[in-house]
Simulated assay, not measured.
Amino acid sequence: MGQYAPFSDQGSLEEQIKGLADEELLDFWEETQQLAKMLDQDEAVDVDYNPEYERVILQELQYRTCCKGQF
């Protein structure tokens, strides 16, 4: 399962996402969707969800889909 560690020496979010296998990337995307849904439903939680995860994941999925069609 893919994980993003913002304070690690592994590089940026984009670099980490590019290194994930397709299935790991889809798992990570699903987890971010579940987290966002939980945060939306729980009004007692005072945490801002960062949509940057979703944007970067979707961008990588689109890139991979386009590239697979070219081969």
Rank of each mutant, 00 (worst) to 15 (best):
T65H: 06
I57N: 00
F28L: 06
L39P: 01
Y53Q: 06
E24T: 04
D46M: 10
D42V: 02
C67K: 12
R55Q: 14
E14H: 06
E54S: 10
D46N: 14
E43W: 00
L20M: 15
F7S: 05
F28H: 03
I17N: 01
Y63S: 12
C66V: 10
Y53H: 14
Y49R: 13
V47C: 04
V47Y: 12
D40K: 15
E15M: 09
D48S: 14
E31G: 06
E43A: 11
E23A: 12
A5P: 00
Q3K: 15
E52G: 10
I17V: 15
F71I: 11
Q70P: 00
E24V: 01
C66S: 11
Q41N: 10
Y49K: 12
K68L: 15
A44C: 08
V56R: 06
L39A: 06
G69M: 10
D22F: 03
Q16V: 09
V45F: 05
D40R: 15
P51E: 07
Y63A: 13
A44I: 10
I57K: 00
T32K: 05
I57S: 00
E14Y: 02
D27H: 03
Y53G: 04
L26N: 07
E54R: 07
C66Y: 08
L13F: 08
E24K: 09
K68M: 14
R64A: 09
L20K: 11
G11P: 03
R64I: 05
L26V: 11
C67E: 13
A36Q: 12
Q59G: 13
L61W: 04
D40T: 11
L13T: 02
C66R: 05
K18Q: 12
V45C: 14
C67N: 09
E52M: 13
G2K: 03
Y53S: 06
Q33Y: 02
G69D: 13
D42S: 09
Q33F: 02
W29Y: 11
Q70S: 08
A44E: 10
W29K: 04
Q62D: 04
A36F: 02
R55W: 00
E23L: 09
T65P: 01
G11V: 08
R64G: 08
C66F: 11
Q70W: 01
L13E: 05
Q34D: 14
M1W: 04
R55C: 09
F71Q: 12
K37N: 12
D22C: 01
E43T: 14
L39H: 03
R55K: 15
Y63C: 05
A5K: 13
F71W: 02
G2D: 00
M38W: 07
S8H: 06
